[in-house]
Nucleic acid binder design. Structure first.
Lengths: 239, 239
DNA sequence: TTTATGTAAATTGTGCGCATTCTTATAGTT
DNA sequence: AACTATAAGAATGCGCACAATTTACATAAA
């Protein structure tokens, strides 16, 4: 019965990441605990975890709120990614393994396929995954973890600030990064990565984002959906 | 009365970072709560925080233990630093501000002075601070935070694996990084940084580290010391 | 009309006690 | 002697009830 915590965390996390909850919305402990069918203490622990990852904002004696990142914070995230991912590709260019290289190539093909298919959801997923693959190629656990956090927060930013109809055609940019890596040209790889991230950053627009009505309702629906899919409803019916 | 939590956290943190606690030592909730004069619940929260920063290891249903990083983990930390700090100096070389440059120069002078004075403790402190100054020069909050975590864990590694008498004469290496930055030579700066970190890494030795007797005693002594210095004893006497 | 103040409702924070789980010691069996 | 089973002990995990804090609202004075 420890896994339910993880399940709730995942549900809330993906809801936050995909922008299904309005920024600034209060997340009260009791209603949430009620919706997910757990005690308030457990709910508290989950909210604490979400808070450390900055997916929600925790204010002492006030409670938890859906994170409402400013454009300034958004710029900081992208700047951090330019620095960190610049370091990653610079490091990778000189010593990437053939196995990782092959994996990346497969990924680029998958990205292009999704793009031509017009599968937008898959495209954004793969787009994020490309960056995670690069992080994993370093073999450093710490780097993977940090990139995971940055990619998560970037996803939330995109959900909030992206003007919805923007084309995610980052595929060629990813390929140019890959090409530079394969050529062993660390400087070109770094430049390509920075340019790519800067380009993505410029797509952010201040307006945007006013999706959900009731936060707990939204989460409740997602939770029911997930439990139905798992075949394990959280409410057991009599015989 | 929220600040006491921070104070306890700081005390434990610095004790861990300076290697005053033997790796693997169990940190039981009740004795610690007793020593610090707080409830067990509060102690639990503090241990949780220390756990997220990997200063202690948290095992479900088993408790908290002083972190005992393996050499493999140590290598991962240094590899991460080469990647991240390589990215930092590469980023900085092209656009470092004159104010940051001046701050760095002052710092180098202070390092050299401490070294000539033979002040070993100050030397290691300044040595870590140099890297934090570089992180701060990026202006990115996220980067500073991540570097903080990496530097912390590095400090613990050094306390555990360093053969005690190693000379911390990294001053020239720091200067060569600085010089490359001033020259705007990003490639040279990256190379210098990586070389520096690799050199520090090679100083780690498997043996080492068997300092403290009783963990709670040690922490209790540090706590008493701190409270005496603050002039605010944690036990109030009647009138 | 605006501002200050006091009170009530709602929400988060925390100590306590018990439930759960893991470890250790002991006895019993092969 | 070695291995398993079982019970006792100790430590963590967690739900509950109460305490502390903040917010909202009503009321009264300037």
């Amino acid at each position: 019965m420890r896994n339910i915590e993880e399940a709730i965390y995942d549900t809330m996390s993906s809801a936050l990441l995909s922008g299904q909850l309005s920024p600034g919305t209060p997340l009260r402990e009791n209603p949430l605990a009620d919706v997910f069918g757990v005690s308030r203490e457990r709910m508290r622990k989950i909210l604490l975890r979400l808070g450390t990852q900055k997916l929600i904002e925790l204010i002492p004696n006030r409670g938890a709120f859906v994170a409402a990142p400013s454009l300034a914070q958004a710029r900081d995230i992208y700047e951090s990614r330019r620095i960190l991912e610049g370091g990653i590709v610079n490091h990778l260019a000189s010593l990437i393994g053939s196995q990782d290289a092959q994996r990346l190539q497969q990924h680029l093909a998958a990205e292009q396929a999704a793009l031509q298919r017009g599968d937008r959801a898959e495209s954004v997923r793969l787009s994020a995954e490309f960056h995670m693959l690069l992080a994993q190629a370093t073999g450093s656990h710490f780097i993977v973890q940090q990139m995971g956090e940055l990619v998560s927060r970037t996803s939330m930013l995109v959900a909030m600030f992206e003007p919805a109809r923007s084309s995610h055609c980052a595929c060629e940019e990813h390929r140019s990064i890959y090409d530079a890596l394969m050529a062993g040209d660390s400087e070109a790889a770094t430049r390509a990565m920075r340019a790519h991230l800067s380009l993505v950053e410029t797509r952010l627009r201040p307006g945007a984002a006013a999706p959900s009505g009731n936060a707990v309702e939204t989460l409740g629906a997602l939770w029911a959906l997930r439990n139905a899919a798992d075949g394990a409803p959280h409410e057991a019916a009599g015989p």
